[in-house]
Each structure stands twice: as C-alpha cells, then as structure tokens.
Design a protein around this nucleic acid. Structure first.
Lengths: 253, 253
DNA sequence: CTCAACAATTGATCTATATCAGCAAGCTAA
DNA sequence: TTAGCTTGCTGATATAGATCAATTGTTGAG
C-alpha cells in the first residue's frame, strides 16, 4: 500500500517545489545549495490537504516521516489514561512536526488539523540518508531539534513558574513572533485554536483564558474580536512576559 | 588556561576508555562497532571532576561541546529576569547535557554540579563530523535528541495537568527508572538534590514537596530518611502517576 | 565540640485559579 | 424560520497549594 502510494514521491521531479516555496527560507532548505535543495525536494511528498479535525498521525502509530506544515495549523496532543486530551504544541507553516517519533519509532502524540492544512511529508529514513551526504542539511536538522528542546524548556518554565496573565501574554507574543518570522503582521492575527485549546495548552481553565483576555482588552493591551487578536501595547505585553524567554533573547543577540 | 588544560584530550589515546566505561551501553557508543567506539573515544576529553556547586557551563556562554555525565549529578537552570532560578532538568550518569546549545550556538541554560561530578566533554563539531562517517552514530544522536524532546513534553504534561501528589510521584518514579536502567536499585536510592530544587523543578513550593513526601510515608507508599528514599508500594505509586507517561509506555511495547 | 548557616518539617492563614452554573451569540440542519 | 449545538463570557463559590512564621535537624568551618 505504501508502495503504490509513494509514486507521487517523484512528482516533484519536474521542478523543485522547495525552491518556489515561500517557506524555504524558514524550513529545512535554509542554507542549502541549489542542487542540494533539489535532492531534498525529490524525497518530499506533497500530501492532499487535511480538513479541519483530520489526523495527520496518531499516538502509537509507527513513525516514518516528519512533516513540514505548508498552510494551516496543527496541534499535537496526548490522550492521558484518564481520557483527557493534553495539547503539547501548535504548529504553523514552515514548522516541523513529528521529530519526537524518532526515538521509539512510534509517534508519542497525535497530530490534528485545526483548520484546512497542507503538509510536506518527509520520509525520515530518506532524510537521514540525505543528511549524510549534505552536511549542512544534517546541521540544520540538529539545529531544528535543538531549538525544539530549547522551546519546550521555555514552555516548562512557563507552565511551572508563570501565572495566568503571564501565560496568556507569553502565548500571544509567541504566536506574534512566529507570524512575524513568516512575514505577516506581528500585531494583528487570527487564532486558529479555540479558547479551550489555549487553556488546555497553557494549563489553565477555559474561563481563566477568557477572563484574562477580557481584562487585557479592558486595560488596552490587546483588542479581541472572537478569534481576531490585535496587540495594542506591545511594550506592556513584553513586560508581562518579562522573565526567562532565553531562547528567544539569544536569537536577538 | 583552557589550552594548557586541554592537553588531557589526548590521554585517551593509550586505550579506549569508552570501551571500559560501564556506561557505554547507555551513552553514545550504544550500537557502535569497536573501531567506531575508538574513533569516538579519540575526540572525547575527560575533564577534572567538578566539585559540588561548580558550573560546567553558564547561560549565554558560547556552545562548543556536549557533555556525558560519568559520575555524580548535574542540574540545568535559567536565571529569569526577576533573578530567580528555574531548574529545567537533572542529569544522571550516562545522560547527555548541552544539546539545547546547538541551535543558537550558545548555551541557553547553566549547568551546575549537585555533588562531585565527572563528565566526558565531547566537542560538538568533532562529533558532528564523526557522525557523517558513522551513520549509526548519527542515528544515535537523532534518537537522543528525539528522546529529549519526548521527555520534555512529558514534563510539560506533568507541569500543566498534574497535582502535587502526581508531580512528586512522577518525579520519584522517573528517578527510579533512571537508576534501574543503570543497574542500580529501582526502589532505594539517594536524592542528590534538595527539597527546594525538587520543588523548583516541579513547580511546587518546598513546603508542599515536604508535606507530600511526609504523607506518602504515612500512607506506606515510600520511606523517607533525609535524602534516602525507598519506594515501598510501587504499584500504588504507579497508579498515582497513572496518566500520560507515553514515552515511557511505548518503550515497554 | 560548638556555633552559625542552611535544609527540612510543621502549622496557620491567604489567594489565585478551578469549578460550577447560567446566559448570550453564532452556526448548522431541517 | 426555529430548535439544537457549540463557543465564549461572566458571576459565585470552593480549594489546592502558596505564603508566612516558628521549630527542629543537619552540616561544616574553625
């Protein structure tokens, strides 16, 4: 089954899609020579879009690929023994999902589309092989995984030490940075996740998320209109986040 | 100073220390052919022991090596803007510290010895080079980083969703597993960190850690004598941890 | 051995956030 | 259109765990 399916792996032979992709400066191809981008391009499968709510992979499934988000958003989550969902991350365009599956050869989480979402599937065994031949690709992979470790540790600090205000502010600014990096507005954007999902991710009750956002709006920090967010007072928001966004800070040095 | 000191980089030429190391089955050399272990061995520096409280590297310092703990224990931590310490991890023998520095080429955390500790320094540029020549070493590195991502995400679940009892139980069982893996008792061990450090790590006040442990003891779950811990009722402890230790579970499949 | 500094425990409050409950506004399907 | 869901907001109350404070135990320097 995987065999017949994998024919479209070669559909990219005609032209390098990676080179035309607006995300290539952020995704894996960063700092690759043209010919290397082509080689990477050859191993990538473009999948049909996922509709909102569809799973990209599910917890326990055998690992064989990592995925780069092209459009849309994904969330990854665990189902705990008690049956509740615990969201471990949101993934925006240019970001890589599935790296946590390498170790045990099974995905330890599920990945679900929050809206219509397209991804590039990158079979990991091919990627690993190719990375032997292209040192800068290998380095890029190490860097991406290292950044993920760094980011997750910042998230641990957030969950362990921050109060509700700081959590919500951190979350919004984090999204803001990610939009900015892709060339979108850092101050006005649309949340693709529900309040419930934000709360779940931040370790807060839905009601708390709602209350904090309302208060932020009252105090002129942000403007909220359903899923549309505008950051009005960026300086004050940054002050709220304040402590310990080390990974981000170092980037600015 | 670092120069004169680094002469001992070559002390390993005489014989492969990795091959004699009791941790080689857990550390990087896992699944390497003998000749490859020797090549790895050549790039490793054995450093003088760190005394309790000494820093291995500090937040912001330029990244050039990862470190494998040989004996003792390390903690990694951030200093937040408000000046408080936030512990992001504890490292036991055979575990690798410093991977989070790859991305930005600076360590985003500090690493401090909790007791007298010896480490193997592995210059990352050498390791990366070597990994090009030894595919299984490269794979091992990917796996280690993937596992770290997986572990950190479990920690996020712990911090976001668990109550004090579950946090402390998870922490103790996690240590138990790590001791067991190295061939030590899974039920009786010594904590190398203070109650304050445990609380800091788990997002709890010292007092709460103390109270939970006392209650666990009263209820016959564990036996506490200062830093010495015995797990009496492993089944009940595991029930407490219960939900969502996915990475660990998959390992048992 | 002794004193000082620090680490751990225990008890008494306080508080941030969860939980419970009710309501309003959209959205979907018939 | 209306009934039935879902999502978000807000108020009232409950509670887990923080904070404050006092006591005891431990460690290590001289």
């Amino acid at each position: 089954m995987a065999i017949s399916n994998s024919n479209n792996r070669f559909s990219s032979k005609l032209t390098s899609q990676c080179q035309n992709c607006s995300l290539s400066a952020l995704c894996l191809p960063i700092a690759l020579a043209d010919e290397d981008v082509n080689r990477l391009d050859q191993i990538i499968e473009r999948k049909r879009p996922l509709k909102k709510g569809e799973l990209l992979f599910h917890q326990g499934e055998e690992f064989d690929s990592v995925f780069a988000v092209r459009t849309g958003t994904l969330k990854t989550f665990n189902i705990t023994n008690s049956g509740e969902e615990q969201i471990t991350g949101f993934y925006c365009p240019s970001e890589l999902v599935g790296l946590s599956g390498i170790d045990e050869n099974h995905y330890p989480v599920s990945a679900k589309a929050l809206e219509t979402t397209t991804v590039c599937e990158i079979p990991f065994s091919h990627l690993e092989q190719l990375s032997s031949q292209i040192p800068s690709l290998k380095h890029q992979l190490f860097r991406l995984m290292s950044r993920k470790i760094c980011d997750d540790q910042q998230m641990m600090v957030l969950l362990g030490k921050k109060n509700a205000d700081e959590k919500v502010a951190s979350f919004l600014l984090n999204l803001s940075h990610r939009f900015k990096k892709r060339g979108y507005s850092a101050t006005a954007f649309r949340l693709s996740m529900s309040r419930g999902e934000i709360g779940n991710y931040l370790g807060l009750a839905v009601e708390t998320v709602s209350r904090v956002m309302t208060r932020f709006q009252k105090n002129g920090l942000i403007d909220v209109d359903g899923k549309e967010i505008s950051i009005i007072d960026m300086a004050e928001m940054e002050k709220l986040v304040g402590a310990s966004s080390e990974c981000a800070n170092i980037e600015h040095v």
